[in-house]
């Protein structure tokens, strides 16, 4: 318990470099412990109190606001280089309480409590009336879109069979009416063309992809994201991701890089 009866906390400016240092340690803590979705970045420091701690050190009691970025939680990109999800893509905010110990110049997180919530539909539509809103990940249309997309993906796979890891984001797009989903997949020890019982396939943990985005137009028309370079990650030999996903509507097909480096394509279509 950092609080000691009779002691008085030190007031510090929320934008003080020392406060910011503690807040950035807190944000790193979030991103190192999150197990799904996207990394968060610091948006605002709401409150700070600095309590003395016996026998030594100080405890920074912080309230911070964060914003979701576009970096998947497994993405090795430093969060400072990650793009913040804009309001037009239905931004997500995090609210966190932290206690961070500063001792001998080192910051250590003692306590963390965070919650996240999407921007209100009213606010999104105020900025952008045609923007798609986030949909629940268990929404029937979302689940259907993921199933169709993953089946199409595996049909095109000339190597490993891919399993769903998680649905990270989903939006209902008003025009044209479609469902937009982002999901992560992992390669398995099965060969796609030979799979009879997917339940018997074992995921290869080191082959989890970053989320691909897929828009399901109507009932069956799948539009994939384009293949884009991703930070190189160690890729053991073996299964390969399909490099040219099926696109039912050629007109809607995003153009692929003419000759992308092989290492850049290991995770398939990415945002």
């Amino acid at each position: 318990a950092p609080h000691i009866s009779g002691l008085v906390y030190r007031e510090l400016d929320c934008d003080d470099p020392e406060t910011e240092q503690a807040a950035l340690v807190a944000v790193d803590y979030i991103n190192n412990h999150v197990l799904q979705g996207y990394k968060h970045t610091l948006n605002q420091i709401d409150k700070v109190k600095v309590w003395p701690r016996r026998p030594m050190g100080e405890v920074f009691e912080l309230e911070i606001d964060t914003l979701e970025t576009k970096c998947y939680f497994l993405d090795p990109t430093p969060v400072a280089n990650c793009t913040v999800r804009p309001l037009t893509e239905h931004a997500v905010e995090g609210d966190c309480d932290f206690q961070v110990l500063k001792q001998d110049g080192q910051f250590t997180v003692l306590f963390a409590k965070c919650g996240s919530s999407p921007d209100s539909a009213e606010d999104v539509l105020k900025v952008c009336p045609q923007c798609p809103l986030l949909a629940p990940l268990n929404d029937t249309k979302v689940v259907h879109a993921v199933e169709v997309a993953l089946t199409a993906f595996n049909t095109q796979s000339n190597g490993s069979y891919f399993q769903l890891v998680e649905v990270s984001r989903a939006q209902h797009v008003p025009l044209p009416p479609s469902t937009y989903v982002e999901f992560a997949v992992t390669a398995t020890d099965c060969v796609a063309a030979e799979v009879t019982d997917p339940a018997k396939c074992n995921p290869l943990a080191e082959k989890v992809s970053r989320p691909a985005w897929v828009a399901l137009l109507g009932r069956r028309k799948v539009k994939w994201s384009s293949l884009q370079p991703v930070p190189p990650q160690p890729q053991p030999d073996g299964a390969e991701m399909p490099t040219t996903p099926s696109v039912a509507d050629p007109a809607a097909s995003p153009s692929l890089p003419a000759d992308p480096p092989a290492a850049a394509l290991v995770v398939g279509p990415v945002v």
């Binding site: 929320c14 003080d16 948006n43 605002q44 709401d46 700070v48 914003l67 905010e93 209100s120």
Partner: peptide
Amino acid sequence: TVAQPSVPVAAGPVVRPCPGRIRHFKI
């Protein structure tokens, strides 16, 4: 601040140390 009673003291800027600056946008 020390001032003569007859001389009005100019009000200084109000210090609002918290919350801090918004780095991106507020939702």
